[in-house]
Design a protein around this nucleic acid. Structure first.
Length: 665
DNA sequence: CCACTACTAAACAAGC
DNA sequence: GGCTTGTTTAGTAGTG
């Protein structure tokens, strides 16, 4: 029932490759992030890893942006706009695997390993310093050359060479910094989880770009010094120290708090945890944010506490206000801060993506028809936001999945639709948007509101409309309504697309007309429908290959979709019961289609379909002309009303009020 | 170049 | 007669 589905046209080879890229991106990213999680792992460690990744990623981002600005070379090759885009796309993949590995491995470090780590760290520092020096020299050289050229006006090549060298070094630097960052965080974590003999704080200036470096530095100092203090002195002493440490060390944090408004609240919360806790648990005897499921939730602790009382005991004894706890708090603060930062970034990216989808890259030919888009609001918004890391695609791919830049057929202006005469546009193949599951789910709302042509063939859409109905049958008018309900695009220019719908219904064998008491309804002959694509696919070996290779993505694809839908509390394909059935079901139908296509590639022709869709083993009527159908016996009740989407149909009326529309209800 | 598919336009018929 | 529904044909365009 839940199958991967894409419209037949969507599966055209061209778009398929894009799709796979896309899918790979979507599937690879989360997978790698969760990657090899050891069985036993404190949540704290997860947080640390996560934050480490975020830090590194952020670092990389900022670095790239900086370097993108600095190096003229980069701008030569690609529009400045695109640089951050590709970076944004790549970062998750670039960072994750190795870093994960390292971080995870480092998690179980023995003292010796720690030693090694530290040595590595130092070595890194050294290398980095060297690199930096080199880099400086290069810069100076470049400056010099620039000056010379300004006077002499020549030798651009050399300059370029230097620039590229510079770039390369920047990248190396970047990598070093990443590694460094990573080591630092690993060490931090270790320092908290195991007692780490005091290693002098390391010079950390190069880290500056990534995240508040002074804070990190401070953190590191504190953590290490705290441990050494703990080792050398007793607990009593340290509990005395804490206050001082707390006070003195809070200075840098405060500065950062000022810089980051979000952090301030967190800072407040986490800086004085012990006090708060004692207060809070008095007020709310059995709810404590640090206690849950009989386990202490203090980062890295996970001590089992039978009851709340013992937890309190544990809390007061093990996590008293001492240097260590303070340091841990600070780290936690960092973590939260980083998460917030990341969240902000992701939000921004999401915004930019959405904006981008509403906007049109305005380029191609002096098109008679303007390129689209939705509202001026989004437009203006996009102007300011679309720049940084929004675009989901690398500049190198000519066919950006979500934005068919080419001749604007995929998008049509509202205003021009009526006036512009017949515009031939073909959206299914070329301009087709390869669609990942997430896209589908996400874009559903988008298509509902934005007058963007959906990247599905009429046949697929019709089928979807029909399958979505509880009886798996719709009248023509109901199909129309579905179109207008689901796609803003189809709220205009009704004559054209309605004609196309009728044309498709008549033309394709997979659509079966069933006479009924009250008229005629259309159903889908799934067998026929499935037959359609194999032809296409079977003719093209490369496609088959792609399809097969893509099979592996189907699962994560589904998972991702379902997850995203679950997040939005969108039920899957329970059409009859839910208020807004369309979103989930469209997506699921898309999956279905994809799966169906793949089944056919795997088991060509053979009658695999009946098993697959008991649900729509509707009417195996192959002769279109035949009005009579076993279906007729089934009952005339269904078509009478649109009981299933009664709520939605009010919307339909709205749409139908439009000038062009000549629907009758 | 050809076959195939998809989209668009339009003519036409039947029924209400 | 006007409209919807349904069928059919023709032309265009993209892809392999």
């Amino acid at each position: 029932m839940f199958q991967c589905v894409l419209s037949s046209s969507v599966l055209q080879p061209h778009s398929t490759s894009c799709l796979f890229k896309h899918l790979f991106y979507h599937s690879a990213t989360p997978a790698s992030q969760k990657q090899p999680e050891p069985a036993v792992r404190a949540p704290f460690v997860k947080l640390c890893i996560f934050s480490a990744l975020q830090v590194a990623r952020q670092l990389l981002l900022q670095q790239q942006q900086v370097s993108g600005l600095k190096s003229p070379k980069r701008n030569d090759k690609q529009p400045a706009l695109q640089v951050p885009v590709s970076v944004a796309m790549m970062t998750p993949q670039v960072i994750t695997p190795q870093q994960m590995q390292q971080i995870l491995q480092q998690q179980v470090l023995s003292p010796q390993q720690l030693q090694v780590l530290l040595q590595q760290q130092q070595a890194l520092m050294l290398q980095q310093q060297q690199l930096q020096e080199f880099y400086k020299k290069q810069q100076e050289q470049l400056q010099l050359q620039l000056i010379q050229q300004q006077h002499a006006g020549k030798q651009p090549k050399e300059q370029q060479q230097v620039a590229t060298q510079q770039l390369a070094f920047q990248q190396q630097l970047l990598q070093m910094q990443q590694l460094q960052q990573q080591h630092l965080l690993a060490l931090q974590r270790q320092g908290l989880l195991t007692i780490q003999p005091g290693q002098p704080a390391l010079p950390l200036q190069p880290l500056a770009q990534g995240m508040i470096p002074t804070e990190l530095q401070q953190l590191w100092k504190e953590v290490t010094s705290a441990h050494s203090a703990e080792e050398t002195t007793g607990n009593n002493h340290s509990s005395l120290d804490l206050t001082t440490t707390c006070v003195s060390s809070s200075a840098p944090s405060k500065t950062s708090l000022i810089m980051n408004p979000h952090a301030s609240t967190n800072g407040q919360l986490s800086v004085h945890p012990p006090k708060r806790e004692s207060l809070s648990h008095e007020e709310h005897p059995h709810s404590h944010p640090l206690y849950g499921h009989g386990v202490c939730k203090w980062p890295g602790c996970e001590a089992v506490c039978e009851d709340f009382q013992s937890f309190l005991k544990h809390l007061n004894s093990e996590h008293a206000l001492d240097d260590r706890s303070t340091a841990q708090c600070r780290v936690q603060m960092q973590v939260v801060q980083q998460l917030e930062l990341q969240l902000a970034k992701d939000k921004e990216r999401l915004q930019a993506m959405m904006t981008h989808l509403h906007v049109k890259s305005t380029e191609p030919k002096a098109a008679p028809q303007p390129l689209n888009l939705v509202s001026s609001v989004t437009l203006s918004k996009s102007a300011s936001e679309a720049s940084p890391q929004s675009l989901p695609h690398t500049p190198t791919t000519p066919t950006a999945p979500l934005t068919p830049v080419t001749q604007g057929p995929s998008v049509i202006t509202t205003t021009n639709m009526h006036t512009v005469g017949p515009i031939r546009r073909r959206y299914s193949d070329k301009y087709n948007v390869p669609i990942s599951s997430a896209d589908i789910a996400q874009n559903q709302e988008f298509y509902k509101n934005a007058e963007v042509r959906p990247p599905f063939t009429y046949a697929s859409l019709i089928r979807q409309a029909i399958l979505e109905s509880p009886e798996k049958q719709l009248t023509l008018n109901e199909i129309y309504n579905w179109f207008t309900r689901m796609f803003a695009y189809f709220r205009r220019n009704a004559a054209t697309w309605k004609n196309a719908v009728r044309h498709n219904l008549s033309l394709h064998k997979c659509f079966v007309r069933v006479e009924n008491v009250k008229g005629a309804v259309w159903t889908v002959d799934e067998v026929e429908f499935q037959k359609r694509r194999p032809q296409k696919i079977s003719g093209n070996p490369s496609l088959i290959k792609n399809m097969q290779s893509s099979h592996a993505y189907c699962t994560p694809l589904n998972a991702a979709l379902q997850a995203s839908m679950a997040e939005n509390s969108i039920p899957l394909y329970t059409t009859a019961s839910m208020g807004n059935p369309t979103l989930g079901s469209l997506a699921s139908a898309m999956r279905e289609e994809l799966n169906g296509a793949m089944e056919h590639t795997n088991s060509n022709e053979s009658d695999s379909s009946p098993g697959r869709s008991p649900l729509q083993a509707v009417h195996p009527v192959h002769v279109k002309e035949e009005p009579l159908d076993p279906e007729e016996a089934e009952g005339p009740l269904s078509l009478v009303t649109t009981a299933n989407h009664s709520p939605d149909f009010d919307h339909d009326r709205d749409y139908e009020d439009e000038p062009v529309n000549e629907d009758m209800e």
